[in-house]
């Protein structure tokens, strides 16, 4: 039951974007389309789970004074794996995401979960926490990406919605990302109060 909660909390109750307000930089930058959002979300989820598990395994060996650099090295290792795999098998996506793939290293969700959770909990809990947080991040990012792709480009997953649709360009631009995120936060708050 408690284990299940460690997974479940990341989806909505402690959603990394909507509640913890972490990882906003990739959220605003790469949520221009559903494809980008999903690619970013899944990459971050993989790194999050792997680093969470590894850090919870080695937490007793790391002196607390150098823990942050050690976490960064561990996270960077997994990010390098993601980067190379993506470049080999999904070159188009890799080109689209650009600098934001290596920047997963300093994604504050991952470092935040490492510091706040994985460094003091067991392996199974850390795995579930990483999975929940990752899925929560991916889902939120995908919703923003979907809304922005439909409104800003008139497409879903790259396919046009309708031929005579006039795209609202602002949603393809950074202000559109802030706006959609803000409206999503409103929805979340309204939902919480009900």
């Amino acid at each position: 039951m408690r284990l299940w909660q460690e997974f479940y909390k990341g989806l909505l109750k402690e959603n990394p974007i909507l509640v913890l307000a972490l990882g906003l930089c990739p959220t605003l930058a790469v949520s221009t389309s559903l494809k980008n959002a999903l690619g970013m979300g899944l990459s971050a989820t993989f790194v999050l789970i792997s680093s969470n598990v590894l850090i919870s395994l080695v937490k007793s060996f790391i002196p607390s004074r150098v823990r942050i650099p050690s976490y960064i090295v561990i996270i960077a290792t997994f990010v390098t794996i993601v980067e190379l795999v993506m470049e080999a098998y999904f070159p188009a996506l890799y080109k689209q995401l650009g600098i934001f793939v290596p920047l997963i290293v300093v994604n504050c969700i991952i470092l935040g979960r490492a510091e706040a959770f994985a460094s003091r909990r067991g392996v199974v809990e850390s795995f579930l926490d990483g999975l929940g947080m990752g899925i929560g991040f991916t889902l939120t990012l995908s919703v923003i990406g979907l809304v922005r792709e439909v409104l800003g480009a008139g497409k879903i997953w790259g396919y046009p919605v309708s031929l005579d649709f006039v795209p609202v360009l602002m949603f393809a631009l950074p202000p559109g990302a802030l706006l959609v995120l803000g409206l999503l936060l409103i929805l979340k708050q309204v939902g919480d109060r009900r």
Binding site: V166, V168, L169, M170, F171, L173, P175
Partner: peptide, 8 residues
């Protein structure tokens, strides 16, 4: 400003 950014 919204209209300028959206439908230039």
């Amino acid at each position: 400003a919204f209209l300028m950014a959206s439908f230039p």
